[in-house]
């Protein structure tokens, strides 16, 4: 167990409703957990609470118990102990730029340098992360001149270069072209071999294939937790648009719930 939430509620300042309401969940290393829901379901807030950025940066109030790598991320000591051990990738790459790098290489090195690593270790981690995300050829480019997709891969490399034990990804492929998005999602199970990965996404056609487990949130409450097939193949998830295109087609043509999530699933089901 690397992340545990017990009865966690969170409310943003000025709001009269909970963005998260009585959420209890445990995340384990070695698996990609997908969290999804409709707009305003609380997926991004869940990531911020686990990282300790809510309420530290956002303000607001939290109740319940959050344990990230045996620490409470909302406390000062917890945040210090978790620095660099919890990686967070936000959906918009340009707001994540460090603002002090003139090359991609420096941008990727920003996080590891903040952790006080030796320069040789930083160089190794940066090279490996850039290779992994296919941005090594951009190493000498000014990050401000990159496309949104290239920059998001650079930011992902920057997060991974810190070698976090918990990786929180908020719509990581929002800026990527279809091939780039597919590449990132295919990488997630590999990345998760060494760490806990929580992926907030509404790109369910791709995310479902990359995840081992799924959580479904609805207006801040956790309404389903199980395997991807159990959660996204459920009638309620498909009816509210929180599933894959194949599952929606399957429901539309009158198949029984436990809908196939991909073309391969559908083929297996019809050839059984």
């Amino acid at each position: 167990m690397s992340v545990r939430l017990a009865g966690v509620s969170f409310r943003y300042p000025g709001s009269d409703t909970d963005a998260l309401h009585e959420v209890s969940v445990t995340l384990r290393p070695g698996e990609v957990t997908l969290v999804t829901g409709r707009l305003g379901a609380g997926c991004s807030t869940l990531l911020l609470v686990i990282a300790g950025l809510a309420p530290h940066i956002t303000g607001g109030s939290r109740s319940g118990e959050v344990t990230t790598l045996d620490r409470d991320p909302a406390t000062r000591d917890g945040r210090k102990a978790l620095a660099g051990r919890v990686g967070l990738l936000l959906p918009t790459p340009w707001t994540q730029l460090s603002g002090m790098s003139f090359t991609v290489e420096e941008e990727v090195a920003f996080g590891p340098a903040n952790l006080g690593w030796r320069r040789a270790r930083i160089a190794g981690a940066v090279d490996e992360a850039m290779q992994r995300f296919g941005v090594a050829h951009l190493a000498r480019r000014d990050p401000r001149t990159l496309s949104g997709g290239e920059l998001q891969r650079v930011m992902f490399a920057g997060v991974l270069a810190m070698e976090p034990e918990v990786l929180l990804l908020d719509e990581p492929a929002l800026e990527l072209d279809p091939a780039g998005a597919q590449g990132v999602y295919e990488l997630l199970p590999v990345v998760a071999q060494e760490r806990t990965v929580l992926l907030a996404s509404t790109d369910l056609d791709r995310a479902a294939a990359a995840a081992h487990r799924a959580l479904l949130l609805d207006r801040g409450s956790l309404v389903a937790d199980g395997t991807v097939a159990e959660v996204l193949g459920n009638d309620g998830a498909v009816a509210t648009g929180c599933s894959t295109t194949v599952a929606e087609i399957a429901r539309a043509v009158g198949l029984t719930p436990g809908y196939p999530l991909s073309v391969a699933d559908a083929v297996r089901r019809f050839t059984r």
């Binding site: 990282a51 950025l53 945040r79 990686g87 707001t95 994540q96 903040n114 952790l115 006080g116 810190m162």
Partner: peptide, 23 residues
């Protein structure tokens, strides 16, 4: 953008207790 930038910097260790390495 302030909140999002602050979150990104915090998550990238800008507030880490270690003394940053001069690259």
């Amino acid at each position: 953008e302030v909140d999002e930038r602050a979150m990104a910097l915090d998550a990238r260790g800008a507030a880490a207790p270690a003394h940053r390495t001069a690259l």
